[in-house]
């Protein structure tokens, strides 16, 4: 059951006044302009045991993404395609509001937003991940690990996912007699990416729209709107996330901001 989160109580009203006061003068708690994103740092290949990995710092939010490829069975309805699985863990070391246990609705929503945009765009050429069509295929696991939460985990995770997928290496598979699969220990292939899509998160705070919100801003925001855009500017996913609402005009303005944001995000990718 989904429950109203308890992080919207009375204290935040004072905070909201401060944040709003600044926003109305076109600045923010950390000195940014309304449409500015935070600094981005991406390091890849940081987990030797993973096929691909990335450590993203978006301001003070930090996410590690690990890509692991394993040989498995295809889904019955797509027998000649590899399998993509996106999962997110909000581990308790990242925030006092994260509890140990199975992924909660926030983690599930985040993983599904990223999964959908990749899947709908057919960003990964899953047909090239079949080893023995109909029988054995590569299953690509994208595990998003949030390790420090200072807002906008979706964009940090989306950057990490693409960075890890782009740099991942999986061993070349050779099929011997009797459908035996031999994995090369010297030859590798990349995960076949046809195109790239990244999310851009915008917070609506009163009548204002702000790009890449920090945690304090998220706490007082009416709602977030997340656009996924590909490198050609097509929309590959949308998610309104939060208790408030948006007008059609807000949505249009947010899309304009998202276009600029994803262009900057794209330029930071390895």
């Amino acid at each position: 059951m989904s429950t109203t989160p308890p992080n919207l109580p009375v204290v935040s009203k004072i905070k909201k006044d401060t944040i709003l006061g600044m926003i109305s003068k076109s600045t923010r708690v950390d000195g940014r302009k309304l449409s500015d994103i935070r600094s981005i740092e991406i390091k890849t290949d940081i987990i030797p045991n993973a096929n691909g990995s990335a450590h993203v710092k978006l301001g003070r939010s930090q996410v590690i993404v690990g890509v692991k490829a394993e040989i498995g069975s295809p889904y019955p309805d797509t027998p000649n395609e590899g399998v993509l699985i996106v999962n997110a863990e909000f581990v308790p070391l990242a925030s006092p509001t994260f509890e140990p246990g199975p992924p909660d609705e926030r983690a599930i929503e985040l993983a599904r937003v990223i999964d959908r945009s990749l899947r709908e765009l057919k960003a990964i050429e899953l047909d090239k991940l079949a080893i023995i069509p109909g029988k054995r295929v590569w299953t690509v696991f994208v595990d998003i690990y949030v390790i420090d939460h200072d807002g906008n985990l979706v964009d940090a995770s989306s950057l990490g996912t693409i960075a890890a997928l782009k740099t991942a290496k999986i061993p070349k598979a050779k099929v011997e007699g009797d459908d035996r699969i031999e994995l090369s220990d010297s030859e590798y292939m990349n995960i076949p990416l046809r195109s790239i899509t990244l999310t851009a998160t915008i917070a609506k705070i009163d009548e204002y729209l702000v790009a890449d919100p920090v945690l304090e801003e998220e706490a007082v925001a009416d709602t977030l709107i997340i656009f996924s855009l590909d490198s050609e500017g097509r929309i590959t996913g949308i998610q309104k996330s939060g208790n408030g609402y948006l007008s059609s005009d807000d949505v249009r303005k947010a899309l304009e901001m998202a276009k600029t944001m994803t262009k900057i995000y794209m330029s930071k990718l390895p």
Binding site: R116, E120, L121, I225, D230, G233, R234, I235, T236, G237, I238, Q239, K240, Y245, L246, S247, S248, D250, V251, R252, L255
Partner: peptide, 26 residues
């Protein structure tokens, strides 16, 4: 949405749309 106050309360997209298509879809 809440029509009488022009407020969109749920919006998701599963699939690919151009910007023009999205405006029409809205």
């Amino acid at each position: 949405a809440m029509p009488s106050i022009g407020a969109i309360t749920l919006l998701q997209l599963n699939g690919v749309l151009t910007e023009e298509e999205f405006m029409k879809a809205l």
